[in-house]
Simulated scan of single mutants.
Amino acid sequence: MDLTLIRHGESTGNVARELAMRSGAEIMDIPERDPDIPLSQRGVRQAQLLGRWLAAQHPPDLVLSSPYLRALETVRTATGHPGIRIDERLRDRDMGALYRLTPAGVKARFPHEYDLKESVGKFYYRPPGGESWADMALRLRAVLSDLPRDSRILISAHDAVIILIRYIVEGLSEAEIMEIEKLPVANCSISRWVDGRQVMFNEVSHLI
């Protein structure tokens, strides 16, 4: 299998998070539901640049996307592919009651949850009404098991999805993937595996 993953372009949610983190705010200024967050203008441009790179590659046999708007907008802009298959198992992590909160907001409003995450660890911590990274890994294993072999596959999704697919494909440990996760997966970056062998990860040279 030739598997290429792209993270969505910069979203208005990414911009709001950055502003909130810089200012020390407890809540991110995001009016939409998580599934409805669109690309920013910069994100649209990133998707267009990604499209130039994809146009120079062999076309995929199958294109899948998270149902979330920012992922769909990215792959539609980049490929113009008419048969994009939406798979809800590729959605971003559900943060439940902690949605829109910065770490400062969680510590101030849910101090027990903040301490619990520190105790349990990021991989297994499940926020109230949300899911852990381990929960995500279960649904992503199901996606990968359903993919056709001997195919070129393109997936548009989210940073946590890409990290966890690497965890599954490369057979990594919790400690290994949490170390890799310290370096953020960039917007509109490209990661690729051929027959389980990593060809590139978090590649952004096409955006320059």
Rank of each mutant, 00 (worst) to 15 (best):
L54T: 06
V199G: 09
R89D: 00
L54Y: 12
D159R: 12
M1P: 07
I30C: 04
A134C: 09
Y124Q: 14
S66P: 03
A108I: 05
E73C: 06
D94A: 03
K122S: 06
G43I: 00
V120T: 12
V15E: 15
R76F: 05
R42P: 00
S132G: 06
R42K: 10
Y167R: 07
N14H: 15
Y99M: 04
R192A: 11
E88V: 06
G196D: 11
H158R: 04
P31W: 00
R70K: 10
G105M: 09
D36E: 15
I180F: 13
R192C: 10
P128G: 05
G9D: 15
V194P: 12
L69F: 03
P103T: 00
A20T: 07
N202H: 15
G171I: 04
A104L: 07
N187M: 04
F123P: 06
I208K: 14
V169W: 03
T79R: 14
D2N: 14
T77D: 12
Y125W: 14
D2A: 13
A55R: 08
S205I: 11
H8I: 11
F123R: 14
P31T: 01
L72M: 09
L116E: 13
S119D: 10
P60Q: 11
Q41A: 08
Q57Y: 13
E131S: 07
I180L: 12
T4K: 13
V44D: 02
V143N: 04
A97M: 07
E10P: 12
L172G: 08
R109W: 10
I163K: 15
D195F: 14
P59T: 04
V169S: 00
D159T: 03
M178S: 07
I153F: 03
R141L: 02
Q48K: 06
Y114W: 13
L39T: 02
V75L: 09
A20Y: 14
G13C: 15
A25W: 12
Y114I: 00
P82D: 05
N187C: 06
R70A: 08
R91K: 08
Y99H: 08
S189N: 06
L62R: 09
R33S: 11
Y167F: 15
Y68S: 08
A55I: 05
Y124N: 15
R7F: 05
S23G: 13
S191H: 04
I208C: 13
H206K: 13
H58A: 07
R91F: 00
L144V: 02
S11W: 10
P60L: 07
G96T: 00
M95A: 04
T102Y: 01
M21D: 13
I162Y: 00
L98I: 00
L154W: 12
R42M: 02
G43P: 02
L101F: 11
L154D: 01
D2W: 13
G105F: 14
R76A: 10
R126W: 13
M178D: 05
V63E: 09
D34L: 13
A16C: 11
M28P: 02
Q46N: 03
T79C: 10
G130R: 14
P111S: 04
